[in-house]
C-alpha cells in the first residue's frame, strides 16, 4: 500500500473541504477500498475517513420513507430497518458478519460494484441518494460499472427509501466472494412494480422493464413465467456464462415475487 495522509474530520463540512484536493479519497467502512489500496490499484494523497461524522449514521422513518445515513453499517441496517424488512434482509446477507459491522451503505453505493446488493435495493425502491450538494434519483444515479452520478469529492450523506407495499430480494451468491452472481430486487408500490437486477449486466445494475410491465397487472410468479431476459450484454466469466446469468434473472425474479412480503 502506498503511503497517504490520514484525515478524520468530525463534520460533513470539514470532510468536503478535505476532499477538495483532487487526489484525496473518501473512506467509508473500507471493506472494498482497503483491499484496493493494498493492491496498489489506487494511490490517494490523502484518505478522508467519514467514520467520525455522527451526522452520517442512523436509520429513521420519515413519513413514508426510510432514511439511512450514508455512514450506517450493513449490520445496523439489518438490525434497525424494521419498517422495510426486505432491505433489512438484504443488508443482513452482505459479505459476512465482520464485514457487515464495518461496511457502509454510502460506501457501497459510491463504489457501485456491478455485483453489489445495495444498488439493486436503491434502484428497485426508487430511492433518493442525498449528498452534501444535492439529491439524486436512483434512476439517474447508477451509470454503469463502478460509475455513478457523484462528482469528485461529493459525499453520500443519506439514502431515502420509499417503503413499498411488498418487496423481496433474491440473491444467487457467488460462493467464494459472497457477492451476487445475480441478484433481483422486486418492489411493489401502489403505482407499479419495480424490478432491479445486479450482478448480471456489463452495464451494472439495471431495471428489467419487461418484468415490471408483466407484474404491473398481475403481481404473481406466473406473470413472469414465460419471460426471458436477454443474454446480450450480460457478464460472462468463469462463474457463469451470459446465458446462465440471463436464465437466473428469470428464476430469481419469480422467486422474489413469490416471497415478497
Amino acid at each position: 500500500m502506498y503511503a497517504f495522509e490520514f484525515v478524520k474530520p468530525a463534520t460533513i463540512a470539514e470532510a468536503v473541504k478535505a476532499l477538495a484536493d483532487e487526489d484525496a479519497q473518501a473512506l467509508g467502512g473500507g471493506q472494498t477500498l482497503i483491499p484496493t489500496l493494498k493492491q496498489r490499484l489506487a494511490s490517494p494523497s490523502a484518505l478522508v475517513s467519514l467514520n467520525g461524522i455522527a451526522d452520517l449514521k442512523g436509520v429513521a422513518v420519515e413519513g413514508r420513507e426510510l432514511r439511512i445515513g450514508g455512514g450506517t453499517t450493513h449490520a445496523t441496517v439489518a438490525r434497525e430497518a424494521r419498517t422495510y424488512p426486505a432491505l433489512a434482509a438484504l443488508a443482513g446477507h452482505i459479505g459476512d458478519p465482520a464485514v457487515r459491522n464495518r461496511g457502509t451503505i454510502g460506501g457501497s453505493l459510491a463504489n457501485n460494484d456491478p455485483s453489489a446488493d445495495y444498488p439493486a435495493a436503491a434502484l428497485a425502491s426508487g430511492a433518493t441518494i442525498v449528498t452534501n450538494a444535492r439529491e439524486i434519483a436512483a434512476d439517474d444515479y447508477f451509470q454503469g460499472m463502478f460509475t455513478t452520478a457523484l462528482e469528485p469529492g461529493e459525499i453520500i450523506t443519506a439514502v431515502r427509501f420509499p417503503i413499498p407495499q411488498k418487496a423481496n430480494y433474491q440473491k444467487f451468491a457467488q460462493p467464494a466472494s459472497r457477492f451476487a452472481l445475480v441478484g433481483v430486487f422486486v418492489a411493489k408500490f401502489a403505482d407499479g412494480v419495480r424490478v432491479a437486477v445486479t450482478g448480471a449486466s456489463e452495464s451494472g445494475v439495471f431495471r428489467w422493464s419487461e418484468a415490471e410491465a408483466a407484474l404491473g397487472g398481475n403481481f404473481s410468479a406466473d406473470a413472469v413465467k414465460g419471460l426471458k431476459a436477454d443474454a446480450d450484454g450480460m457478464i460472462g466469466d468463469l462463474h457463469g456464462t451470459p446465458e446462465y446469468r440471463a436464465h437466473l434473472i428469470g428464476v430469481l425474479t419469480a422467486r422474489a415475487v413469490a416471497a415478497a412480503a
Partner: peptide, 29 residues
C-alpha cells in the same frame, strides 16, 4: 489472506467483531 476473506484476524473493536486486516489503526483512535 490479508484480503478480508479468511477471518484469522478477527478482533473486537468497541465490542464488535471486525477484520483487523481491513481497518486502519488511525480510524479507530
Amino acid at each position: 489472506c490479508d484480503t478480508s476473506q479468511c477471518g484469522a484476524c478477527v478482533v473486537h473493536v468497541d465490542g464488535v467483531a471486525l477484520k483487523s486486516c481491513t481497518v486502519f489503526a488511525s480510524d479507530i483512535d
